[in-house]
Amino acid sequence: MPVEFNHMVVHARDNRESAEFFASLLGLAISAEWGPFIAVQLSNGVPLDFAAVPPETITPQHYAFLVSEEEFEAAYARILHRGIEHYADPHRKQPDAINHHDGGRGVYFVDPVGHLLELITVPYGGWTSSPHT
């Protein structure tokens, strides 16, 4: 069996708040709830399992998501509508902008607990084969 990525636990102060923030911004739905987890399923079958943990134990992480142009457009419109601070770069030096790396578009923003989320329409280095959109 080939090695596949199965799931990711995302630490949150409030697992429902974080799951709903993420799902609503990307036009996804909460797919499951069990124990301390609220899951949001990504298109490739990998769930993000949001888990409430004590705030002092949260270490902000960087999560990047490859999205279609249409998904980017919809998510970026939601970012603008909600007044979410966003940046063209991960160091947050270029506010209120997107980037155009590798011929695509990208944006960075922060979730309710400080995780840096990134949306890109072209993988780093460009497409080596046809995009799966």
Rank of each mutant, 00 (worst) to 15 (best):
P47I: 04
D49F: 08
Q94T: 12
A88F: 00
P131L: 07
P36R: 14
A75W: 06
D49Q: 12
P2G: 04
V40I: 13
H11K: 06
A19D: 02
P112F: 11
Y87L: 00
T121L: 07
N99A: 09
N6I: 03
L119A: 04
E20S: 06
F50M: 08
Y87K: 01
D102I: 00
V113C: 12
L117P: 04
E20C: 01
S31L: 10
Y63I: 15
A39G: 14
W34P: 02
Y108G: 01
A19N: 02
E85A: 15
H62G: 04
I98A: 09
E118Y: 09
R78L: 02
A32Y: 11
T59M: 09
G45Y: 14
A29T: 14
G114T: 11
H101N: 12
D111F: 10
F72C: 02
F72R: 03
E69Y: 11
H101Q: 10
I120D: 04
P90D: 00
L80F: 00
H101R: 14
P54D: 13
H91P: 00
G103A: 10
F5A: 03
E17H: 11
E70T: 13
G83Q: 06
F21S: 02
S68H: 02
N6S: 06
V122F: 04
T128N: 10
G103H: 05
H132Y: 09
R105L: 13
V53P: 03
S24N: 15
L28E: 02
D111Q: 11
D96S: 15
Y87I: 01
E4V: 08
H81N: 09
N15C: 12
P55S: 07
H62T: 08
E85W: 03
G125M: 05
E118N: 05
P54H: 08
I98E: 08
Y63A: 08
N99V: 06
N15E: 13
F37L: 14
F50R: 05
L48W: 03
N99H: 06
L26E: 08
V40A: 13
N15S: 14
V46Q: 11
I98C: 11
V9E: 00
G114C: 10
L48H: 05
D111T: 10
I84C: 03
G45R: 14
H81C: 01
D89G: 01
F37V: 13
V67P: 05
K93Y: 00
G126E: 05
H115K: 12
H100T: 14
G114K: 12
D49R: 12
G114L: 12
P2M: 06
V46T: 13
A88H: 03
H11Y: 03
V9C: 01
